[in-house]
């Protein structure tokens, strides 16, 4: 039994090993391109020369100030939020074994926002929104695992969608109860965006994003083993229950980091893992970094478009990801049927 499984895995590894490296280089190049576009574009005109001059420290004071204080933090923030959300795709797929692998669709993101808003109101604001949001997302994970068992992934997906709907109506309730002429506070959570992003926010979320990403990228082997089913995985020496919990906890943490920073952004996880699967197959050691890259690209691109299309007004990045992701989901479902 043991050697059969091992042989299968070795075979799978050989089959998928062949052509991934150039794809990775391609993704990294694309990411760098998008980051360059994001830095070079904004409502204050900064030419390519100025941008290059800034890199070597020779740009004029105003452009340098805008790049340091406004644009660069925002671009990095979009990248980190995107990569965090991208990682939740494969993590949730491995942990829950569902095709609806998205923190928005399964209710983690909605509960993250709800958790952050509620916990802030009872005086826990000092922990910082990424932490509060992670607690909310963790609660959603706990609910999901309690309300469904590992056998039926369909049922889990449905419960997740119900949780997502509940959390959104919970947010609407808070909006109605707050009865304030400027309730944009809660509204700002529901459509995620990076308005006014700056270095403060960056420092607040960076440690969590960095740690979460680092650990997630090391879980490739564990995620692969989880896919084989608990029995086989246990036989190969894995503590399936603990591993699954770790994977899901990370998904909650990364969701919290992202939602706590910029509000709800739909479908990034699902988009990332679907595209990654199309290119790299089923090996999580490749899916995890690929999804992070793709998610980073998607959100960075959405933010750049959103803040330059109708400048000086902004379309929040969340609007784009939700529409894009929704369209992709529809295409996906047509192919599946």
């Amino acid at each position: 039994m043991k050697s059969d499984a091992k042989q299968t895995m070795q075979l799978a590894r050989d089959v998928t090993k062949s052509s991934s490296l150039p794809w990775f280089f391609g993704l990294i190049a694309l990411l760098l391109l998008v980051l360059g576009i994001a830095l070079a574009n904004g409502s204050y005109p900064i030419s390519l020369q100025t941008l290059l001059a800034w890199v070597v420290g020779q740009a004029d004071a105003t452009s340098a100030q805008i790049l340091w204080e406004v644009r660069a933090p925002r671009v990095i923030l979009a990248l980190l939020v995107g990569s965090s959300l991208g990682l939740t795709g494969p993590l949730l797929q491995a942990g829950f074994r569902t095709s609806l692998a998205d923190s928005y669709l399964l209710g983690l993101a909605g509960f993250a926002a709800l958790g952050a808003v509620l916990l802030q109101q009872i005086g826990m604001a000092g922990f910082g929104t990424p932490v509060l949001a992670s607690m909310g997302a963790g609660f959603a994970v706990w609910l999901l695992t309690q309300l469904s068992n590992e056998r039926s992934s369909e049922r889990r997906a449905l419960i997740g969608v119900a949780l997502a709907a509940m959390s959104l109506s919970g947010l609407s309730l808070l909006l109605a109860l707050s009865q304030s002429p400027t309730s944009s506070n809660v509204l700002g959570w529901v459509v995620g965006g990076f308005y006014g992003a700056g270095t403060n926010q960056l420092w607040q979320m960076l440690p969590f994003a960095a740690i979460g990403t680092a650990i997630a990228l090391m879980l490739g082997r564990i995620a692969n083993l989880l896919q084989l089913g608990d029995d086989v995985a246990e036989n190969l020496g894995l503590n399936a229950r603990a591993s699954r919990n770790l994977v899901l906890m990370l998904a909650a943490l990364l969701t919290g980091v992202a939602v706590g920073t910029s509000g709800l952004m739909g479908f990034v996880g699902l988009l990332s893992v679907s595209v990654a699967r199309g290119i790299f197959g089923t090996d999580y050691k490749k899916l995890l970094p690929a999804s992070a890259l793709i998610g980073g690209i998607a959100v960075s691109l959405s933010d750049v478009i959103g803040r330059t299309l109708i400048a000086p007004n902004e379309i929040p990045a969340g609007a784009f990801t939700t529409v894009l992701g929704g369209i992709y989901l529809m295409i996906l479902s047509r192919r599946a049927s």
């Binding site: 409502s43 204050y44 204080e69 406004v70 644009r71 006014g196 400048a311 000086p312 007004n313 902004e314």
Partner: peptide, 16 residues
């Protein structure tokens, strides 16, 4: 010169 919406002014334009 205008710096965007009064409720969400554009920080880049302001600094510019």
């Amino acid at each position: 010169p205008d710096v965007g919406s009064a409720y969400r002014p554009d920080t880049e334009k302001i600094l510019g």
